[in-house]
């Protein structure tokens, strides 16, 4: 190999290595054991808005407005070369000029040079501000999900406790309980699919079909959008009415459930007026006791500021439900 060839070989290697360092997005610098900057890559100048003149030959602790002059970081760095140790992910929170408040992770290692016990360190800066924000958001989301799970289980326990046990078989209890849990899940799914834009017609259809199948007559009615908080109460009410119809009302015979609604103004506030009517079933007799189902209907509607009025017409149960709508 001629000297010329050796020179080319070394030069190619050097250019390639420099290219890698220059391409890296992470700001990095090389400092000696007195913390003087020997080298920096373009990402460093770009990130901290500085240039070679203001960086090379200066102490790391004098850079910028002295943002790295932290006693703890100084102590850690002074150990890197003599103890061949490393600093991994030391976090510095600082208001960087032109960058704003950022969290930087500092990693420092003795520079690896084969066969040479280097006295220089490679210091890499990683901006973890966005990652930390994303992680914080994820933590909040996880905590929120856990909270919802617990509330959901607590709600299921309420349903288990409140579903009638006296005078029913185990199988009847199970079916009744699972029916209510299903109604709860339908409401949950509906909320996650539709958010705060819950269409009443779709909700009525989804709540009634598991119990009533096709034996519903949904009269064409104006489009009504429910608030997220109204979905669960109304789902439970519709479920209870449908189960009741199956046990004692129109669905116990050959009848159908007819549902229609309109909106009206009540003291300048729009409210929903929903008519539940059972037709073609066996003669109706008013119930002799009020169970959880009746209480649930009454409570749910009143809690939302509405009313549920039952008319036990011999020809079929009629229920008039009113519910204030979100402005």
């Amino acid at each position: 190999m001629t000297l010329e060839e050796l020179y080319r070989l070394l030069r190619t290697g050097h250019i390639q290595t420099q290219g890698i360092v220059d391409t890296l997005h992470e700001p990095l610098i090389v400092i000696d054991k007195a913390f003087t900057v020997c080298n920096a890559n373009p990402a460093f100048y770009r990130t901290f808005g500085t240039d070679p003149d203001g960086t090379i030959g200066h102490s790391l602790f004098d850079l910028g407005n002295g943002q790295w002059d932290i006693p703890e970081l100084r102590t850690l760095l002074s150990d890197v070369v003599p103890k061949a140790s490393a600093i991994v992910g030391y976090q510095v929170n600082h208001d960087f000029p032109g960058l704003g408040r950022r969290s930087m992770c500092v990693t420092a290692r003795q520079l690896a040079i084969p066969g040479n016990n280097s006295t220089q360190m490679l210091v890499v800066f990683e901006d973890v501000t966005d990652r930390q924000k994303a992680e914080a958001r994820k933590d909040i989301l996880i905590a929120e999900t856990r909270h919802r799970m617990k509330n959901l289980i607590a709600t299921v326990k309420v349903i288990a406790r409140q579903t009638q046990v006296a005078g029913v078989t185990g199988a009847e209890y199970r079916d009744r309980f699972l029916g209510r849990v299903d109604a709860l899940l339908i409401a949950q799914d509906f909320i996650s699919a539709n958010g705060s834009n819950a269409d009443l017609a779709a909700l009525v259809e989804q709540c009634l079909s598991p119990v009533a199948g096709t034996r519903t007559d949904l009269v064409a009615s104006p489009a009504v959008s429910l608030s997220e908080n109204q979905v669960l109460p109304l789902s439970m009410v519709l479920h209870e009415l449908a189960v009741n119809a199956l046990k004692y009302g129109a669905l116990a015979g050959d009848g159908v459930i007819r549902v229609a609604w309109s909106t009206e103004l009540d003291e300048a506030r729009e409210r929903l007026v929903l008519q539940w009517q059972e037709v073609g079933g066996p003669p109706v007799t008013p119930p002799t006791h009020t169970g959880f189902g009746t209480r649930l209907i009454d409570y749910s509607i009143k809690a939302e500021g509405g009313s549920a009025i039952f008319h036990h017409d011999p020809s079929g149960l009629r229920v008039a439900i009113t519910l204030p709508l979100q402005q």
Binding site: I159, M236, A303
Partner: peptide, 23 residues
């Protein structure tokens, strides 16, 4: 804010003779 839980709480307290405000 969970309406079924609130409903049960209200019922338990009312059955014990308290006057419930809310939920």
């Amino acid at each position: 804010d969970e309406y079924l839980i609130g409903m049960e709480l209200a019922q338990i307290l009312e059955d014990s003779g308290y006057r419930v405000i809310g939920p």
